[in-house]
């Protein structure tokens, strides 16, 4: 028997929770069909998390790609199918990626497994994104280096702690009609590795904690800068990410296991700082949103 996981029409960080909810009651070895036929929109978080979903399954799942040609074409240009075809059995044809001059994809879906991958990602994002970040988001050239640094730290965390490769993607959006009312860039860095709780199991924070769960592990790692290693220089990467996101009025969310935290919630958005008892999903999923810089009054 095959269980069907139906993707929402708009697949983003929030709506991916409906996917995890559908997965929750199913055994790890259950045969799945992930049905994207009616999906019309997906963010970097949605696409990278879909690859993580397949990585968590003991049996290779099936995948029904979007029926809409434009959506399918975008997913192909984003390199999603390139990796999805390795992790899923495709039910239906997928288009080959064609160059379109689409400058909004700043970094296609890219695997993160080795130190060299991070070098490639940082190099490509500087090559492709600097002009967009300075012209569309009004960031100073210095801020684009901080952007690349944020990306490298987030990807390095996968290599250092996840014990399994992950994925990264970066995309620009015009959110003129949304509450923020301006262009934004979204970074998603997702893995299906061991997650914060297991990674920090041997940490001092764990030894001192009366209670230990995914939310406490997330807060220890992301907010307090706790690392599994005692070295005082550890935990600097996430501190740097938080500093950058805060400085540029951005938003940061991190999900791991059964918890999700939003350590930086800007005024232009609403969210809850911490959610416990969510349906479990392996690894760590991080999203950063950086909006266009507002002109100083």
């Amino acid at each position: 028997m095959t269980d069907v996981i139906t993707l929402p029409a708009a697949l983003d960080e929030q709506s991916f929770e409906s996917v995890i909810e559908q997965l929750a009651p199913l055994a790890d070895d259950a045969k799945l069909l992930v049905d994207a036929r009616h999906c019309r929109f997906a963010t970097p978080y949605g696409l990278t998390a879909l690859l993580c979903l397949a990585q968590t399954r003991l049996e290779k799942p099936d995948f029904a790609p979007p029926e809409d040609d434009q959506v399918s074409s975008y997913w192909a240009r984003s390199n999603f199918f390139r990796y999805a075809e390795e992790l899923y059995t495709m039910r239906g044809a997928t288009p080959r990626p064609r160059a379109s001059g689409d400058s909004d994809v700043l970094l296609e879906v890219t695997p993160v497994a080795r130190s060299e991958d991070v070098h490639g990602i940082v190099s490509r994002i500087q090559e492709k994104a600097t002009q967009i970040l300075t012209t569309k988001l009004d960031l100073e050239p210095r801020a684009t280096m901080g952007f690349a640094m944020t990306l490298s730290e987030a990807c390095s965390n996968i290599i250092e702690h996840a014990q399994r490769g992950g994925w990264v993607m970066v995309q620009r959006y015009n959110w003129g009609k949304r509450r923020v009312g301006r262009d934004v860039v979204q970074i998603a860095v997702c893995d299906a590795g061991i997650g914060f709780r297991a990674s920090l199991e041997t940490s001092r924070a764990r030894a001192l904690a009366d209670r230990w769960d995914d939310a406490i592990a997330l807060e220890s790692g992301v907010i307090q800068g706790v690392s599994r290693l005692q070295d005082p220089g550890r935990g600097q990467g996430l501190k740097g990410i938080r500093g950058y996101v805060h400085r540029f009025d951005g938003k940061l969310t991190v999900r791991s296991g059964r918890a999700r935290i939003a350590p930086i919630i800007p005024e232009w958005d609403e969210d809850v700082p911490r959610q416990d008892s969510l349906p479990v999903f392996a690894g760590t999923q991080l999203q950063v949103i950086i909006p266009k810089r507002l002109a100083r009054p």
Partner: peptide, 13 residues
């Protein structure tokens, strides 16, 4: 490094 990058990123590097 094996490739000609100019960025100092990752602990391994």
């Amino acid at each position: 490094l094996d490739a000609p990058y100019s960025d100092l990123v990752t602990r391994r590097t």
